[in-house]
């Protein structure tokens, strides 16, 4: 058999109009059928496996935890007092190689304080039909607002249901958190928030 790794141009250099039928080929030997014993040997591997430890589970009845750092659905995190961490900077959208993230920023106002500081993410969408779970957005996020959970069950019946809105992505309100909008922790600046000085909501932050 001719060396297949060697690149052989079909057209020879001297004469460009080589007739394709005139190109030489080599005959390949085909092995004939093997003996019965040889064939049974092949099934041995299959047979032995029946007695080994089972690796699969009965999904979806049974679910195994993923690897610790598995890249699953995103989550938008909150500060310990419930304010959103996302500042609507769009860096995640910028980093995204699949153009799956759409963000619109807006001004925080005294009546509508969603995150510490001046700016918050008004519109936040991730399109899970596009996301390739590379995690570059997580690396880009300057506030650790965006992280990934281990949730992987992302299938649905329509395309539009796979565009997750901010409400779908926001993390739950845990103990000590108040739902925004509400004012910032009294006496604290956005820098304090980033330094982790705010541990939980202050009663005065509750908005009537």
């Amino acid at each position: 058999m001719a060396d297949q790794n060697e690149f052989q141009p079909l057209v020879n250099k001297e004469n460009k109009d080589v007739d394709i039928t005139s190109v030489a080929y080599e005959k390949v030997e085909q092995p004939g059928p093997k003996s019965l014993l040889k064939q049974a040997q092949g099934f041995w591997v299959t047979f032995i496996t029946m007695f080994k430890k089972v690796n699969t589970v009965q999904y979806p009845e049974v679910k195994e935890p993923t690897a610790e750092r598995f890249h699953g659905r995103h989550q938008l995190n909150r500060h310990p007092d419930g304010l959103e961490k996302c500042i609507g900077c769009e860096l995640c959208a910028w980093a995204c190689p699949a153009d799956a993230i759409y963000v619109e920023g807006a001004d925080n106002t005294p009546e509508n304080q969603m995150s510490p500081g001046e700016r918050y993410g008004k519109v936040y969408q991730i399109n899970y039909l596009r996301c390739v779970f590379c995690g570059l957005c997580i690396e880009a996020c300057p506030t650790r607002a965006l992280t990934m959970t281990n949730e992987y069950e992302l299938a649905d019946s329509t395309r539009s249901k796979l565009i997750f809105e901010k409400d779908d992505l926001l993390g739950p309100l845990r103990a000590g958190m108040l739902p925004p909008p509400h004012p910032m922790y009294p006496g604290m600046t956005d820098t304090n928030y980033y330094n982790g000085d705010v541990k939980e909501a202050h009663p005065s932050q509750e908005q009537k």
């Binding site: 609507g88 769009e90 910028w94 619109e104 920023g105 807006a106 001004d107 001046e118």
Partner: peptide, 9 residues
């Protein structure tokens, strides 16, 4: 225009 967009938008 403040906080409305990024150049790549």
């Amino acid at each position: 225009y403040r906080f409305r967009a990024r150049p790549f938008d």
